[in-house]
Design a binder for these strands. Structure first.
Length: 847
RNA sequence: GGGCGCAUAGCUCAGCGGAAGAGCAUCCGCCUUACAAGCGGAAGGUCAUAGGUUCGAACCCUAUUGCGCCCACCA
């Protein structure tokens, strides 16, 4: 027995994690070499916004990705996890503007150029924090390939694809009603608007007088100043006589036509609707159909511009003012208040969005969305879980054109110049912008998601034909939260397929699999938020429980597509598991466990040895199957129970028998041989267990594996493969365990003290298992010999009382064998198929 | 208004056609020389409700109720 003074009885993550990460980085384990002769595996990070720090949701995402990547690396792939960050246009600009506001400045005080410099400066500070956090988490990212969406290379990719889309008519500029944030002062895309049912009012207003009057209902009374028509349904009998007439618009005296349009629902309200083409998307469409003028009555801040008493009022002040004025004129027919209806809010600042008529740039999405849908339909891309398909198809099959221009300063400037004669020229990355008087560049920038959409290939060097692009595109898996399925995943699909359309269809997709996870929630399933005070800071957990425990807690809850509840208690449970592992290793190392050079000969092994190896080989198959399906939670659960319940609770206890015997009888050669065999099995089991756990718990496993093998790092060890089925040993041990459990229960039920002598007399299981395991049973029960006749029923004498336990029963070894063979065969087959899929040459871009 | 999903032990969730499971929490007993961040034992569920299919249903079908999420231009 060697002394184990080198390992303390409690694991201290803080002492291990920093040095381990430094070692990995220094050794270059994270760096993927595209020239290496091996299949490739690649994942691009969902780039965190530079606006802040990583939250627990990032920790979940990174844990899943790192687990996947580390396993592939061990399986021999050239595995790349490409890191980087997103410039997050509107979010970052808002943050920096807030900083400026503290100094009493606005961005206009600095001017565009100096403001942008200021943002870059801010990015340098904030981005550094994020990178440090990723190291603390243990992310095995390839730091040599770190990217930023505003990098020169990525900006070139943006310009390239913009030009291509423009030239092919898939990007156009048009005057449309768009979502406008009156606080951020920019256009927003449809999905950047969050709808909620808010309390408003529904007022019915009488337009015109007498028989020719008509009553309209509206929630936006203030916009009536910009009405240019009243619309009714063409089949509505009530208003037939008015269609084609004009009616006087109150407060303004303008006369507006009454028109008939299919869009109007005769059953809603009065069946008549005011038409304000400049301030409502539906009305805009009606206006287009009927050639109505658009009258803008609100400016970019939502302030009334129409001449008259309301001019200068904010939209929310103008509304009651207009209603009051109408009421005085006796034109308010009905008022419903509160009236609950859907109102759009700016995703970034919560301000009520204003539909606004303006000139913006759009992507014509129809053909791109069609392709994005097809790639999933024909199986080139697989969504996990498959339940997300419905949502995905519903989205891509009915997608509106994407408004991509933003009236911001932080972002990719739109590469279009306007000439003095009204010329419009889109400038590609290798072209000189037009020079000369009167030419100016579009002042807007692109939606931040425009550049994110290029991420899977822009980060690999596109539009250049680089070795990286060759080796790592398509990426293997995209791991992200379902909350950005539409923002990001769909758009990567559209742009990836478009940019890579020269490739064979199977290789044009941006990724093969999409593994969607949920949000991290608290222990009662509530959403985490700072204001609620239930948010977990991943760094806090890492400090208190260690990175491995933090990762394990997240991974253990990561069922595909569903939210992940966590709590301090569960993190503590994970920490306990890490410590359990630590102590198991400490025990094994202290008893001279070592990894055998060759696979042990089953004939030379004891039943417990064969049992644990048989179990180990099943566990490997199970873990492989689960990880191939992105079922992290299942894999973690399997490993947790195998390590704790089987290895620690039973095998290590059983191993003490031969190990102690060897110490007690130093001159007994047979005892020494038996102990040596057990040391090897112990080493083998520990070796494999540490490897299996390494992807999810990289630090502690690396530390222990290094101690076990003397090698540098488990990161570069080969992923376990072990075929060792022994149904007989499993049946035997199962009988022993049941027997022991039964007796323990009896002891506990009888309230026996440890000091009370207990004798179990066990007669042999008829023709089977436990018969040969008297010693083990005695040891596990701490029985006093002699107990020489074993029986199918265990008789226990305690305190002079004899109790018959109807226990072990008989074990049908043949049936056990059949059952396990069946399960194992199925598991193996699946694992092999998954392996075959990954080894398929078409999977890698390498020729 | 459409679409999707969920209802299983006190809490959070696995199980998805063949004898009700896990983690945490609870109770009882143990400082047993790897680990008290531990060990052994226990208690706790007509698997939302009502029908149906089946030899057999937590699991499949139908309806109901209650939640959750996504999408949506009903003024």
């Amino acid at each position: 027995m060697t002394d184990n003074a080198q390992l303390p009885p409690q694991y201290s993550p803080g002492e291990v994690e920093g040095p381990r990460y430094a070692l990995w980085e220094k050794a270059g384990y994270f760096t993927a070499d595209p020239e290496r002769d091996a299949p490739t595996f690649s994942i691009v990070i969902p780039p965190p916004n530079v606006t802040g720090v990583l939250h627990i949701g990032h920790a979940l995402d990174h844990t899943i990705i790192d687990t996947i990547v580390r396993r592939r690396r061990m399986q021999g792939y050239t595995a790349l996890w490409l890191p980087g960050m997103d410039h997050a246009g509107i979010a970052t600009q808002n943050v920096v503007e807030r900083e400026l506001a503290k100094e009493g400045l606005s961005r206009h005080d600095l001017g565009r150029e100096r403001f942008t410099e200021r943002v870059w400066q801010w990015k340098a500070e904030s981005g550094g924090k994020i990178l440090g956090q990723m190291r603390r988490l243990g992310d095995s990212v390839d730091w040599t390939r770190e990217r930023f969406t505003m990098d020169e290379g990525l900006s070139r990719a943006v310009q390239t694809i913009f030009k291509r889309l423009f030239d092919e008519g898939l990007i156009y500029r048009a005057e449309r009603i768009i979502n406008w944030c009156p606080r951020c002062l920019t256009a927003l895309s449809d999905i950047e608007v969050d709808h909620s049912d808010d309390e408003g009012e529904l007022v019915s207003i009488r337009y015109g007088d007498g028989d020719d009057s008509i009553v309209v209902a509206t929630t936006r009374a203030e916009t009536m100043l910009g009405d240019t028509a009243v619309a009714v349904h063409p089949d509505d009998e009530r208003y037939q006589h008015l269609v084609g007439q004009t009616v006087a618009l109150p407060l303004t005296g303008r006369r507006i036509p009454i028109i008939a349009d299919e869009h109007v629902d005769p059953a809603f309200g009065t069946g008549a609707v005011k038409v304000t083409p400049a301030h409502d998307p539906n009305d805009f469409e009606i206006g287009r159909r009927h050639d109505l003028p658009s009258l803008t009555v609100l400016d970019e801040r939502g302030v009334v511009t129409a001449h008259g008493p309301f001019q200068g009022l904010d939209r929310f002040e103008a509304r009651p003012a207009v209603v009051d004025a109408l009421r005085e004129l006796g034109r308010i027919v009905a008022e419903k208040r509160p009236y609950l209806h859907a109102v759009g809010h700016c995703q970034r600042c919560g301000t009520t969005v204003e539909p606004r008529l303006s000139l913006q740039w759009f992507v014509r999405v129809a053909p791109l969305a069609q392709a994005a849908g097809d790639a999933v339909r024909d199986g080139r891309v697989t969504l996990h879980p498959a339940e997300m398909n419905a949502r995905y198809f519903a989205w891509v099959d009915d997608m509106h054109d994407w408004c991509i221009s933003r009236q911001l300063w932080w972002g990719h400037r739109i590469p279009v110049w306007y000439g003095p004669e009204g010329e419009v020229r889109c400038v590609g990355p290798d072209e000189e912008p037009p020079a000369g008087d009167g030419w100016r560049q579009d002042s807007d920038v692109l939606d931040t998601w425009f550049s994110s959409a290029l991420w899977p290939f822009s980060t690999l060097g596109w539009p250049d034909d680089t070795p990286d692009l060759h080796a790592f595109y398509p990426t293997s898996v995209l791991v992200t939260g379902y909350d950005i399925l539409f923002f990001w995943v769909v758009r990567m699909m559209m742009f990836g397929l478009y940019a890579m359309r020269d490739r064979p269809p199977a290789d044009s997709v941006p990724f093969r699999d999409v593994a969607l996870h949920g949000l991290v929630r608290d222990a009662t399933g509530k959403k985490m938020s700072k204001s609620r005070g239930n948010a977990v800071d991943p760094l806090d957990w890492i400090d208190r429980f260690g990175a491995d425990a933090t990762r394990f807690t997240l991974a253990r809850g990561a069922n595909p597509g569903s939210d992940v509840p966590v709590s301090d208690e569960w993190a503590a449970g994970s920490r306990n598991f890490v410590n359990k592992l630590w102590n198991a290793a400490r025990f094994a190392l202290g008893h001279g466990a070592r990894v055998p050079r060759r696979r042990p000969d089953p004939a030379a092994l004891s039943a417990p040895d064969r049992w644990i190896l048989s179990r180990l080989s099943s566990v490997i198959a199970e873990v492989d199957r689960d990880l191939d399906r992105f079922e992290l939670a299942k894999a973690c659960d399997t490993l947790y129970h195998f390590a704790w319940d089987e290895v620690c609770d039973w095998y290590l206890e059983l191993a003490k028998i031969p190990l102690n015997a060897a110490v007690d009888h130093p001159d007994d050669a047979a005892a020494q041989t038996a102990a040596e065999a057990t040391r090897e099995v112990l080493g083998l089991v520990l070796d494999n267990l540490l490897k299996l756990l390494h992807p999810v718990m990289p630090f502690v496993t690396d530390e222990l594996w290094t101690a076990l093998t003397g090698e540098e790092s488990v990161m570069v060890a080969a992923w376990p493969r072990l075929s060792f089925d022994d149904p007989v040993a499993e049946a035997e041990l199962s009988a022993v365990m049941r027997l022991v459990t039964e007796v323990r229960r009896f002891r506990s039920d009888q309230g026996l003290r440890p000091s009370q002598r207990v004798v179990a007399r066990l007669r042999g299981l008829d023709g089977s298992a436990a018969a040969g395991h008297e010693e083990a049973v005695r040891f596990l029960l701490r029985l006093t010999p002699p107990a020489d006749d074993f029986t199918a029923t265990a008789a226990i004498e305690a305190e002079g009382v004899t109790v018959e336990l109807d226990t072990a029963g008989t074990i049908d070894v043949a049936a056990e064998r059949r059952r396990m063979d069946k399960d194992l065969a199925a598991a193996r087959k699946e694992a092999d198929q998954a392996q075959a899929k990954l080894n398929n040459p078409s999977f890698t871009a390498k020729a």
